[in-house]
Design a binder for these strands. Structure first.
Lengths: 121, 121
DNA sequence: CATTCATTTCGATTATTCTCGAAGTGTCAA
DNA sequence: TTGACACTTCGAGAATAATCGAAATGAATG
């Protein structure tokens, strides 16, 4: 058993609002690029300064973006001496992806599962 | 062969911006609910009036939401006499889901594939 | 061709989001 | 305990987005 299977998130009205917020949090180029960087460097993550250098934005703007991603459960933070390490929050991402996959690929199979998962196991 | 396998969307800067726009388009409660309704009624779709009744918003607001979803390649429209039928744009959704799955589940497997696809084949 | 119906477009208001520089906070090192 | 460093929070301006009612459009129907 590779991973515990997450409990299915029910499609309540509240959950829809929450998933909408998560989508919105990733729905901006700088923030989606942040997610890409953190996923690429998972599970170690990156310190703020490294992300800033990649994106070429001011520290305060970046801080706001990270705060938003954190608030929506998409990234996590840990302090290590003077550095703040950010990492992708895999639990939140898992819930979001499962929700989307469920909505799109189950029921009447609007989107073909194998078209989504073609890239890897 | 159930479905043609879509050509993998390369992770160019331009594509990241496009996927961010798609995520943003779904990143609002009314629009995410619209997508749910259209996926649930796929492939037939729904006429605007039915969606409006479900969401309980004005026609003009709904029209703006539908326009945005259409602009980002998430829904399609067809006219049938006096009625406009909206449907989920499965090609666009497929590209978006494949992108997310690829980012999250390939490479270092930050998110476990089977946690995402647990619900169906 | 006037009317009804389904929906969009227009015009405008309010709310939210993005971004920045400057000031503040927490941590270490000397 | 002073200074440097890594980063956040504050305060504020400018750009986007959401929403609405009213007017306009497009298609059928009498």
């Amino acid at each position: 058993m590779v991973a515990k299977v997450a409990k299915a998130a029910k499609r309540t009205v509240a959950n829809v609002a929450r998933f909408a917020d998560m989508l919105s949090a990733m729905g901006t180029e700088p923030r989606l690029r942040i997610m890409q960087l953190l996923l690429k460097s998972h599970p170690q993550g990156l310190v703020v300064g490294d992300i800033q250098e990649e994106l070429g934005i001011t520290g305060s703007t970046l801080s706001h973006h990270l705060e938003k991603l954190r608030h929506e459960g998409l990234v996590k933070m840990r302090r290590e001496s003077r550095f703040l390490w950010y990492t992708a929050d895999t639990a939140g991402l898992e819930q979001l992806l499962a929700f989307l996959y469920d909505e799109c690929c189950s029921r009447n199979h609007a989107v073909a599962p194998e078209a989504v998962t073609r890239c890897c196991g």
